[in-house]
């Protein structure tokens, strides 16, 4: 991990042009500043890469497969969210969605770096040089952005799911999975808040916004069940204490999302009809994806694949 240090304001490489803020324009009290910036102190993907190189972090085959799932979920979502930057409903929201995308991308990089250690592959090898059937993300993450309501509905489901997941993974017997989850948990907690605030506003705003958020939930609900499906891998990992059975997250997910939906005046049965929405067969964890992922990967991978082996 990095030690915290303050970045002083200095524009190097600009010769004799100094900022030299003086007189009345200066902020006055030197200690009280609204612009003191620091890089902070938290687990970064680079730290994991370093541990991998040193050989101090090496996942088992099962844990690597598991990290691949978590990493792919976050990567595909980050790729989707990144598209919003410069297109959001208001400039402030460009920044908010950008922050969430950056958080998810950070989680993806950490998980993929760790997973890659098992096969001697880098995060970029995994992101850019796997084929579609090799991706392990669930279908929800690859669903198109749609309008802002669809994106918020997707964020709402994802962040409440990820929160429950990372919360339990704090206790993972795999130290790296636990550490990445600890960093991710705090960020995803904020994502929950962001999406919940918007669910309240869209549901309780205008007739149009209510209609749109209801449509958003109906559009995405078929992909909820897949998030909570157990399989042999999760069973083995849960048994070993390194992972969790997704089905064990469902109860808390239902309760907490239900509370927000109730506050938003959205009745799961009467307004959203969630109980009658057929659940998609899924298959993302086995590499079976919807029609959307191919386009997403084509765009994401095009440049890297044009220059195999190149460094950027």
């Amino acid at each position: 991990m990095t030690s915290e240090h303050t970045t002083d304001f200095a524009i190097e490489g600009h010769g004799d042009i100094s900022v030299g803020v003086s007189g009345a324009g200066a902020s006055g009290d030197g200690s009280a500043s609204a612009t003191r910036i620091t890089p902070g102190n938290a687990l970064r993907p680079e730290d994991i890469a370093l541990e991998v190189r040193r050989g101090t972090a090496k996942p088992s085959g099962d844990v690597a497969e598991y990290a691949l799932r978590l990493g792919d979920d976050a990567l595909i979502l980050a790729q989707r969210l990144g598209h919003w930057i410069s297109r959001a409903p208001e400039l402030e929201e460009d920044i908010a969605l950008g922050n969430i995308a950056l958080d998810q991308l950070g989680h993806a990089r950490s998980f993929l770096t760790y997973a890659g250690a098992h096969w001697d592959k880098s995060e970029d090898d995994l992101a850019y040089f796997r084929r579609e059937p090799e991706f392990r993300s669930a279908h929800l993450f690859e669903q198109p952005n749609g309008d802002f309501a669809v994106t918020i509905a997707r964020q709402f489901i994802v962040s409440y799911y990820q929160f429950e997941l990372y919360k339990r993974l704090l206790d993972s017997t795999d130290a790296t999975i636990a550490a990445i989850s600890a960093k991710a948990l705090k960020e995803v907690d904020y994502h929950r808040d962001h999406s919940a605030q918007w669910v309240l506003r869209l549901a309780g705003g205008t007739e149009e916004s209510r209609r749109r958020i209801i449509r958003g939930f109906k559009l995405l609900w078929p992909y909820v069940e897949e998030l909570f499906e157990d399989d042999e891998l999760t069973a083995r990992l849960a048994e070993a204490g390194a992972g969790v059975q997704p089905s064990t997250l469902r109860e808390d997910f239902d309760r907490l999302t239900g509370e927000v939906l109730a506050e938003a005046g959205l009745d799961a049965v009467n307004d959203l009809g969630l109980d009658r929405i057929p659940q998609s067969l899924g298959g993302g964890r086995r590499g079976k994806h919807s029609e959307h992922l191919g386009y997403l990967l084509a765009e994401m991978q095009v440049l890297a694949r044009e220059h195999p082996g190149a460094s950027w």
């Binding site: 980050a78 598209h83 920044i95 950008g98 950056l102 765009e299 994401m300 440049l303 950027w312």
Partner: peptide, 30 residues
């Protein structure tokens, strides 16, 4: 000025570059 760079966020050739570019375009909104 966000636009010409935002166009490359989805195609950035490494994940590190993707993160940097996202943060940069986001800064421009700021």
């Amino acid at each position: 000025g966000m636009q010409p760079e935002a166009n490359w966020i989805t195609r950035a050739p490494s994940l590190k570059r993707k993160a940097i570019l996202m943060a940069k375009v986001q800064d421009e909104a700021g």
